[in-house]
Design a protein around this nucleic acid. Structure first.
Lengths: 348, 348
DNA sequence: ATGAAAGCGCTAACAT
DNA sequence: ATGTTAGCGCTTTCAT
């Protein structure tokens, strides 16, 4: 039913080659013919058949994105950056959303995404890659770009977790706190591990000692401890300490956990920052609503940049691998102190 | 580089027709040949070429989803439902995320999505369709399924906004409130309009009169007033009223707006439910964190169901159009009163 | 049961 | 400058 180049060719009394040339802006077509063909194409409301074009060009103009849903806000913003950029470049996005960090579903998606003629490249988000990943996928025909995760053998875009954790902790130190705890996710997760090291470094540099008693890695392992429940649990645990051993400030490894921490405090009739100051990490949308001080990642830009990296890779398969580190930004809001009523809450 | 059916055919000493038959489980292939071909295919790590297959079959096994990003949580959950279901059916999802309800970008996406050979069907989310939509797209070759939006000419899955608004308002009435206000989004938006009618109906049925003074449609029009800012602004406006004219309870047309409403209250040293009880709509993830009573939509199920509808449509293009209405559920939490400490906040 | 061949709609190399 | 032809990798019809 829809028009093909054959229909155009017939109507314009030319060969399909000429039609193709016109449509693809190739030189060597007389102005007269070009215009005639263009007119017919327009009249027929012609649209190229995506798959036919892809098959002939050996290019899909599609990229696959595999993203765990639990990354939530982060996911959405990065995706938005990607989408905006992709659109202007004529690429489409095939979305593979992971329900949990389920290795099996991940494999299934990977298999589909890497299927011949499915996508030109693949973007992986916030995923912990299995050890044999390089072996299995390094020599595949599609480039991989990692966003918010790292592997030495593939291009990656990440945020400087250490710098972020350092900044958060340092800010608390500058505020005058001497006893600063940390509630961490599961340190098996690379970001959790690195955020911990940033926390520790800041402590050391300022001559504060690290106290195991006020460092709580997550006991709840779902989502690697990056959950509200895990934060709640850790804080309840923390609050078992005798009063004089409690920290006066806590750096929490993610905002969702911080949500739980704040709930736990509320349940103990404690408030932030008056009783204990809190700084989170991620700057999820929620953080601004509740005045949570946190570390903000330039998510949208990361998305945009990752597209650039993908295109570079597409046109130069063998260039050397690059790793881009974004520096996150401290967002001072109320839970860390210095809260100014009527400004912080509403305007940022 | 990757193996094709020709490679298999040669190695297995058969014709490509036979290979194709084996791969597609057609009858009329001897067991012996079938096994031989299968083995070779496996040895060669054969994967069909998606586009070649699509071209030949005139089927892409892909569906396009056009979704405005601002729907946020709703978006994510519905998408998750869709994705899970799609995967089991061997369909892929092409994602077109809209940055705002921008008609131009929408057209662009629609054009891509409806491109020949791009997707078998198209799902539209939370989108207000232009008037000429039917004319332009009804007779296109791909079926449309509308989710969270309505148009008489296309299959749709929506939530019963009227019933939800009614339930919210009725609950406030049952709690003993006599003076119940509403903060609405922009009534130009169908859900806003319908939620308003549910609110009004509940009022009428209980013999309460509708008072213009405590009904505030949004003055801020971005996102049709479904935003935190709009809610904040409306509440500030509402609080101008002399004390005795203030409502004792307010039904807010969405949770994001309710966030703003609560902020505005906080800025006036008012709390919910003590000073004014609040019920929202949507049950976004945030709602549970802050104890916001609200109306919950079965988002995941809506996603799953929409896939079913799409497949029905794919196999029966001319069946009559169906509209499915999901009934939303009231989630009683603290902001409407009856808050029980240590249970509501943490456990649901 | 199976091989050969046509066709899906396009691009690109090859003629002229 | 333009028409013709050979793929792209697969499905499907037509012979045998």
């Amino acid at each position: 039913m829809p028009a093909t180049i054959y229909d155009i060719a017939k109507k314009a009394s030319v060969g399909i080659g000429t039609v193709s040339r016109v449509l693809n802006n190739h030189p060597n077509v007389s102005l007269k013919t070009r215009e005639r063909v263009l007119k017919v194409a327009h009249d027929l409301n012609y649209q190229p058949h995506a798959y036919a074009q892809g098959l002939a060009r050996k290019k899909t103009n599609t990229i696959a994105a595999i993203i765990p849903y639990f990354t939530n806000y982060f996911f959405l913003e990065v995706l938005q950056g990607i989408q905006d950029k992709m659109l202007t470049l004529g690429y489409d996005i095939m979305l593979y959303g992971l329900n949990e960090n389920d290795p099996e579903q991940f494999e299934t998606y990977l298999l589909r995404a890497t299927q011949k003629g499915r996508a030109d490249g693949i973007m992986l988000f916030s995923l912990r890659l299995p050890d044999d990943f390089t072996m299995k996928y390094k020599h595949i025909n599609q480039p991989f770009i990692l966003v918010d995760c790292y592997h030495p053998d593939f291009d990656s875009i990440t945020v400087d977790n250490k710098a972020g954790a350092y900044a958060a902790t340092k800010h608390l130190i500058d505020l005058g706190h001497k006893r600063i705890g940390m509630i961490n996710a599961n340190p098996i997760s690379p970001p959790a591990k690195i955020r911990f090291s940033g926390y520790k470094t800041a402590l050391m540099e300022s001559g504060l000692s690290f106290d195991e008693k006020i460092y709580k890695p997550s006991r709840i392992l779902k989502y690697d401890g990056f959950s509200r429940e895990a934060g709640y649990d850790s804080m309840i645990d923390m609050l078992e300490l005798p009063k004089h051993e409690l920290p006066t400030a806590i750096f929490v490894s993610s905002d969702v956990q911080a949500m739980g921490v704040l709930s736990a405090m509320r349940d103990h009739n404690l408030t932030a920052p008056d009783d204990i100051a809190i700084v989170g990490f991620d700057n999820i949308e929620l953080a601004q609503h509740i005045g949570l001080s946190t570390i903000s990642q330039p998510m949208y830009e990361m998305g945009v940049l990752s597209v650039g990296r993908m295109l570079d890779r597409l046109s130069n398969r063998n260039g050397s691998v690059t790793h881009t580190l974004f520096t996150p930004k401290l967002m001072v809001r109320e839970t860390c102190g210095h809260y100014k009523k009527n400004t912080t809450m509403v305007n940022n």
